[in-house]
Design a binder for these strands. Structure first.
Length: 183
DNA sequence: AGTTCGGACCGTT
DNA sequence: AACGGTCCGAACT
């Protein structure tokens, strides 16, 4: 109806990898979401010919060059990660979808350098809420940009894997790619 | 050593 | 009001 209100440019673009087809979602602020390959997408990419099932980019049909640039950065960064290498550059991340608490957790996660791990309790302290341990776990599960916001580097206090909403196998794989071994 | 259990704790729905 | 990607100590084996 009101065109001005619908002017928000966002896009969903796919990234085909050996491990399946990821889907990146962009807002006007940057990368806002990165989804692991779904089971269907994985099956489709490995078994069936890719039908021209276009990913929708909303509204007017042309993708802003800004987003296309970000997507190239995302693509090479993701492929580097999956190849066990540290990405040189990642796109700007849009965390505005989360609550203040979640954003604080996500920012703390970004400070965990590659190859290192923290516990949920350590993250809770780092954001000044030492008792909000389980809530930190919840915020990790709500992380919209896994891999780039490295929630997989958060382990239980006893160095056991803990959980992972994207599937525990992905967490173990990402840790292994960084040379992290757990108990 | 290792494991299991129960309660405490906090943000989200 | 209930649920979690938790943590800690206690009480076992």
């Amino acid at each position: 109806m009101n065109e001005l209100l619908v002017k928000t440019r966002s896009a969903e673009l796919s990234i085909s990898t050996r491990d399946g087809k990821f889907i990146a979602r962009y807002s006007e602020r940057g990368l806002a979401g990165l989804n692991f390959p779904s089971r269907e997408a994985l099956v489709a990419s490995t078994r069936l010919a890719e039908v021209g099932r276009r990913r929708k980019h909303r509204e007017n049909g042309h993708i802003p060059t800004k987003i296309l640039r970000w997507h190239r950065t995302t693509t090479t960064a993701l492929k580097n990660v999956l190849a066990g290498r540290e990405p040189k550059k990642i796109p700007p991340l849009d965390l505005s979808g989360g609550t203040t608490f979640q954003q604080n957790v996500w920012r703390a996660l970004q400070k965990i350098s590659r190859g290192k791990t923290r516990s949920y309790g350590e993250i809770a302290r780092r954001i000044g809420k030492p008792k909000a341990v389980r809530a930190v776990g919840g915020a990790c599960g709500a992380n919209p940009i896994p891999i780039f916001i490295p929630c997989h580097r958060v382990l239980a206090a006893d160095k056991k894997p803990g959980g992972f909403s994207g599937g525990l196998n992905w967490k173990l794989k990402l840790l292994a790619l960084e040379g992290i071994s757990l108990q």
